[in-house]
Amino acid sequence: MKRPGPLLTLLAGLLLAVFMLTLNATTGVRNTSSSGPRTPAAAPPASAAPEKSTSPPSRSPSPSPSASPVPNADYAGRTDDDSSAVAVSLREGRAIAYFCDGHDKESWLKGDVGDDGTMRLTGKNGAELDGTLRDGRRIRGTVDLGGRRYPFTADKAVKPSGLYRATATVRGAALDGGWIVLPGGKQVGILDRDGEPSTAPVIDPETGIVTVDGKKLTAHPVTP
């Protein structure tokens, strides 16, 4: 009987080869299917904080300059219907005004002037003047007198234009005269004799001299 040596040796080699192939195949599948822990994705870098502006802060607008103070000045003009004249004298926030038609209607008025140039002046028998100083050059307003309203414009007056007044006693009569000298030299005035009004005689605006009933009087510029 022959010994099975070579055949067994060959069979053992085949079995060993099959075993090794199986082992390699199993190991490859395991290595492929199993995966190690994944490395977490790196977080995106934090955005840099915005740089602060190096430009200087904007300045708030400067406050508007205050209105100009009410000037010390005189104003003279006529009513819109050209029936009468109006003169206003301003001094230190106070005002005195004279309304006159040159015949028998007149009124002296006074009061304060606001910082904005507005004024409300009052006189006897409910007379009232409402006006506004505009740019220091003219006064626009109205005079209410005897149930009538007289709109007027009075421009800034340059001497000898302006407002004048004279008071005296002549031959036992109390005289009270008011004159408005308009730009251009025309005069409008009333002279009261014991309360009776009449057209006033012309004054010399350079000197203020006026002759009443043969007596010379001096009319002086009027200020508050």
Rank of each mutant, 00 (worst) to 15 (best):
G146Q: 05
L129Y: 11
S53H: 03
D144W: 13
V143G: 11
A67Q: 10
R94I: 02
G131I: 01
S84H: 03
G146D: 08
D135Y: 02
A76V: 15
D104C: 01
G93D: 13
D74N: 13
E128M: 11
G114H: 10
T79K: 08
G111K: 08
A85W: 07
S55C: 03
D130I: 12
F99D: 10
R138S: 14
E128W: 04
R78K: 06
D101C: 04
R138F: 15
A127P: 04
R140H: 15
N72E: 01
D101T: 05
P57A: 14
C100S: 15
I96Q: 15
P61K: 03
G123R: 02
R138T: 10
G111V: 11
W108I: 09
T118Q: 07
R138E: 15
G131F: 00
T54D: 14
H103Y: 05
H103P: 00
D104P: 04
A85P: 07
E51C: 02
E106G: 09
T54F: 12
P45A: 15
D135E: 05
P63S: 07
L121Y: 03
N72C: 06
G102D: 03
P69I: 02
R134G: 11
P61C: 06
A73P: 04
S55K: 10
R138Y: 15
K105P: 03
R120P: 05
T122F: 08
R91S: 13
D101F: 09
D80T: 14
S55H: 04
D82M: 10
E92S: 15
G117M: 03
P57I: 06
G126F: 05
P45M: 13
F99A: 14
S47P: 15
S84Q: 01
E51P: 09
T79C: 03
E92Y: 10
R120F: 04
L133S: 02
A67W: 00
D130Y: 08
L145W: 14
D112R: 12
T132Q: 13
L90V: 07
G123K: 02
P71I: 08
G111P: 11
D130V: 14
S84P: 00
D81G: 12
G146K: 09
G123C: 08
G93W: 15
D135K: 07
D74P: 02
A127N: 13
G146I: 00
S60F: 11
P69Y: 05
G141F: 03
A49D: 10
S53N: 07
S68Q: 08
E106L: 12
S58P: 14
I96K: 14
G111H: 10
E51N: 05
S107G: 15
Y98V: 11
D104K: 12
D135A: 09
R140W: 05
T79E: 12
L109G: 08
V143S: 07
T132R: 12
